[in-house]
């Protein structure tokens, strides 16, 4: 039989309310509080219950996570549940924090439930399955039933588990599926068009997600003291492409020295070229400075407008490259830049 473990807070464990919210994390073999209900509904055996005070998790997150992951280290389990957390904000946050950590550490499915008003939903719906739940514990049975049902489907290998059919909050994970009725795209388009024209309700197959915002960096106070790095998604690399960066759907990046160079010598000179397959390479191959403007930045260095040009430029290919890979590569680049005192980056894209 498959095994499950559940996380609940001090209140649902029957330890106490607000006065016990600093309760230290603990694991108890067997069923505590809502774990009993889950055990009835789930195809898996619920072997253990993890309990933690909401405030303890809130103010000692790192310690709580470390302890709980420690409890789980020698346990065998196939799936993890957290909550339901209803409208309780701190409990929702705790379910999310623990759920995400457990998923990352043990690669098991994690399922929770929260009311749509619970801030935990937006914070963690991308990381774990979260069902829209009731406002209060009056909905315990309904909410737990949804969690258990999805868990059973996962454990029994049923699928595909789409948000639309199962009802969990969308997670921004989109995959292609073959429609059961094989309705061709042309028919779907005409039907959608007629509804739109006639003012009827229609459903886009690609709901526009909210745009990610990035915190704005502070301006550079004194450029003449600053080290500026060049970076590009235009695929400029040494002609032998030493890091084997892919020419599309890149997962690799490289950094190459520009010490002593006033500009980037071209493909013909046997130095730099582009390996980017998404645009006509002729202009970049003939003069890589069109993509990585080293010559212009050197001129500003010469003039004293900037302190200096960083020793390396950073490069990858931005065609077919997913946002997730791009973000990872960007973070990896930034670590080098920070270590070597780069104050700002000019990033060129093609």
């Amino acid at each position: 039989m498959k095994k499950a473990i559940i996380y609940i807070n001090q209140f649902f464990a029957g330890i106490g309310g607000e006065e016990e919210a600093d309760h230290q994390p603990e694991i108890r073999e067997g069923l505590v509080g809502p774990a009993m209900l889950l055990n009835q509904l789930s195809d898996a055996e619920v072997t253990d219950t993890i309990i933690c005070g909401d405030n303890f998790m809130g103010s000692n997150e790192e310690e709580a996570v470390e302890k709980i992951l420690g409890f789980l280290e020698d346990k065998e389990f196939d799936i993890f549940f957290a909550g339901p957390a209803f409208q309780a904000g701190r409990y929702g946050n705790a379910c999310g924090v623990i759920g995400k950590a457990v998923k990352e550490a043990f690669d098991v499915p994690v399922i929770s439930s929260m009311n749509e008003e619970n801030p935990g939903v937006d914070m963690f719906k991308k990381d774990i399955y979260i069902f829209p739940g009731g406002k209060s514990a009056a909905k315990m049975k309904d909410d737990m039933a949804k969690m258990a049902e999805l868990g059973n489907k996962i454990l029994n290998g049923e699928g595909p588990l789409t948000a639309e059919e199962e009802g969990f909050f969308t997670r921004g994970i989109r995959h292609q599926v073959w429609l059961e009725d094989s309705k061709p795209a042309a028919d779907r388009a005409i039907e959608m068009l007629l509804k739109k024209v006639n003012g009827e309700e229609f459903k886009s197959e690609l709901p526009i997600p909210k745009i990610d915002r990035v915190p704005i960096a502070e301006p550079i106070k004194d450029l003449s003291e600053a080290t500026i790095a060049l970076a590009t998604s235009g695929g400029i690399v040494p002609v032998d492409n030493p890091d084997k960066i892919q020419s599309a759907s890149a997962t690799r990046w490289g950094r190459y020295s520009v010490e002593g160079l006033d500009n980037l010598p071209n493909r013909e000179a046997g130095e730099f070229k582009t390996i980017h397959a998404g645009y006509d390479p002729a202009a970049a191959d003939a003069n890589p400075d069109r993509v990585v403007p080293l010559d212009a930045l050197r001129a500003y260095e010469e003039e004293g407008r900037i302190g200096k040009v960083h020793e390396y430029f950073y490069t990858t290919v931005g065609t077919g490259t997913t946002e997730a890979e791009a973000a990872r590569m960007g973070q990896e680049m930034v670590e080098y830049m920070k270590d070597e005192g780069v104050d700002a980056v000019i990033l060129t894209s093609t």
């Binding site: 645009y279 202009a283 970049a284 003069n287 400075d289 069109r290 403007p293």
Partner: peptide, 24 residues
């Protein structure tokens, strides 16, 4: 897209000016 900072159809001088200006 293929030449962010220098149109190969224009003169070397114009390309340089454009690049210098935009980096500025």
């Amino acid at each position: 897209i293929p030449y962010p900072l220098g149109d190969p159809e224009s003169s070397e001088d114009e390309q340089w000016k454009l690049r210098y200006h935009r980096v500025g």
